[in-house]
């Protein structure tokens, strides 16, 4: 198990422009969206880190931008890292898919696409999961549904 500092060093080795916000519950890394895939690929294949388990993947709408969040864990060493990417483009948000690395990412990403409208490049089957094709993206903060959602 690597501690925070060791992980920080390894990750900065892979992606020098990664930021490490202070005072968080877990080790968080903010990486540019275009560097995310290569970073995860390295983190997964590197013998020291071996992040082979994608616990959770989701997105958060901060109204100014989207944050895509990945919780990765190594089942061998049990260290945990939170990767984040900011997507400023609200009109056509997109980021690389991690399906090639984690099979489970395919479904997490489909859910994020369904609820946030974030497109995932190289995703094998990017279709709406729960909703119809012309429905809005309900977890966006600017989503309005006059019929079904009563604003309080």
């Amino acid at each position: 198990m690597l501690n925070r500092q060791e992980l920080t060093d390894i990750i900065s080795g892979f992606v020098p422009e990664a930021e490490f916000p202070e005072g968080k519950q877990l080790l968080e890394v903010i990486v540019p969206a275009e560097k995310l895939f290569s970073l995860v690929e390295n983190l997964k294949s590197d013998k020291r880190t071996a992040f082979n388990y994608l616990i959770n993947h989701t997105a958060v709408d901060f109204t100014t931008h989207f944050t895509v969040v990945y919780h990765l864990e190594s089942t061998d060493f049990r260290h945990l890292v939170v990767l984040k990417s900011l997507i400023a483009d609200r009109e056509n948000p997109n980021i690389d898919s991690l399906t090639a690395l984690y099979p489970t990412a395919e479904y997490f990403e489909r859910e994020v696409f369904d609820l946030f409208g974030i497109r995932f490049n190289n995703h094998p089957n990017l279709k709406r999961f729960f909703l119809e094709d012309d429905y809005g993206y309900p977890l966006r903060k600017d989503f309005r549904d006059e019929v079904n959602i009563i604003e309080r």
Binding site: I55, N56, T58, V60, D61, F62, V69, H71, L139
Partner: peptide, 20 residues
């Protein structure tokens, strides 16, 4: 494994609540 991920902006309800 149930993982709960919450983003708070300091209000009484979360900005985002995610259940894995």
């Amino acid at each position: 494994e149930l993982a709960v991920y919450a983003v708070s902006d300091g209000n009484k309800s979360p900005l985002r609540m995610r259940f894995r």
